[in-house]
Amino acid sequence: MGKEQADALTARIVAAYDASGVAMEAADRAAREVGASAGERLLVVARALRGWAFGDVAAFTLIYGSPVPGYHAPQETVAPASRTPAVLAGIVRAALEAGELTPPKRPLPGPSLLLPAAVELFGGLPEAPFADVVERGIVLWSSLIGLLVFQVFSRTHDSVRDEGAFFDFAIAVAAEGIGLEVPVGE
């Protein structure tokens, strides 16, 4: 891949990450303005990312689909790519600070598995019993993206009657892993 092609691809990737980040950030800001709980905020931002993904399948596929052979993302993609986990981390941090998290039934044994950048994005490591909440947040994030991949690429359409309701349910189940209650079906 030539430099010109790589630069054009990088610009498209940055634009896709920025657009998805804007969707989530706007949804979270609106939810905070009405005093939503962390669980409500999580559902709102997950739905916003889902709406963006279905609204721009090509951009979603570019950043969450198969890698482009011969392309290696440059450093300038890191900040835009961090917007999604930053929104999620902010919600989890707010839930922790507000006492909205239930301690895990099965804490992660041993030392932290995190790289310093992940700890920094979260704002530091919490004390026990929430010392592994950042790792659990990464599981939540990967569950969200995996669920979107399944739905965008039509892997759930022949398994569930209502993909939107299933999406909400799946987010609620994934949030249980960090001890956060997401209200669904109310």
Rank of each mutant, 00 (worst) to 15 (best):
A30C: 06
V92A: 14
I138V: 13
W52R: 03
A31D: 13
P107S: 12
L113H: 09
V92N: 03
A172Q: 08
F54K: 09
E163Q: 04
V45Q: 08
S20F: 10
E4S: 15
S142T: 15
P80V: 09
V149T: 10
F150E: 02
P111Y: 11
V184S: 04
A81L: 05
K3T: 13
I13R: 11
P109W: 12
S37P: 00
L148F: 12
G146Q: 13
A27W: 07
Q151Y: 13
E120N: 09
V44I: 06
P85Q: 07
F130Y: 10
A174S: 15
P104Q: 11
L49D: 05
E100S: 05
G90W: 14
F167D: 04
I178M: 04
G177H: 08
V149G: 11
I145N: 07
V139E: 11
A48S: 05
D18A: 12
G177R: 02
E135G: 06
G110V: 04
A58L: 06
S82I: 11
A79N: 08
A15N: 02
G39E: 01
Q151D: 15
D56L: 00
R83M: 13
E135H: 06
E97R: 09
G21P: 05
A174I: 11
A73F: 00
A15T: 13
Y17H: 13
A86K: 07
L115Q: 10
S112W: 06
A11H: 13
M24H: 03
S20E: 07
F169H: 09
A48V: 08
E40D: 12
F167T: 06
G177L: 08
E4V: 14
P67H: 02
E97C: 02
D7I: 09
A11C: 10
I13Y: 04
L115C: 02
S112M: 07
Y64E: 08
A95M: 02
A31Y: 05
F153W: 15
P74H: 13
L49S: 03
A31G: 09
K105G: 14
L125M: 15
Q75G: 10
E176P: 01
A46M: 06
P126D: 12
F150I: 10
L140F: 13
G65Q: 00
R161M: 07
R155Q: 15
I63Q: 00
Y17R: 04
R83E: 03
A95Q: 00
T61N: 13
V68Q: 02
L147D: 09
R93E: 14
A118S: 14
V182A: 08
L101Q: 09
I171E: 02
K3L: 14
A19L: 00
G35L: 10
A48M: 07
V182H: 06
F60S: 01
T102D: 06
A31N: 08
L9C: 07
A8L: 15
R83S: 08
D162L: 02
I63V: 10
I171K: 00
E181G: 03
G55L: 14
R41Q: 15
W141R: 14
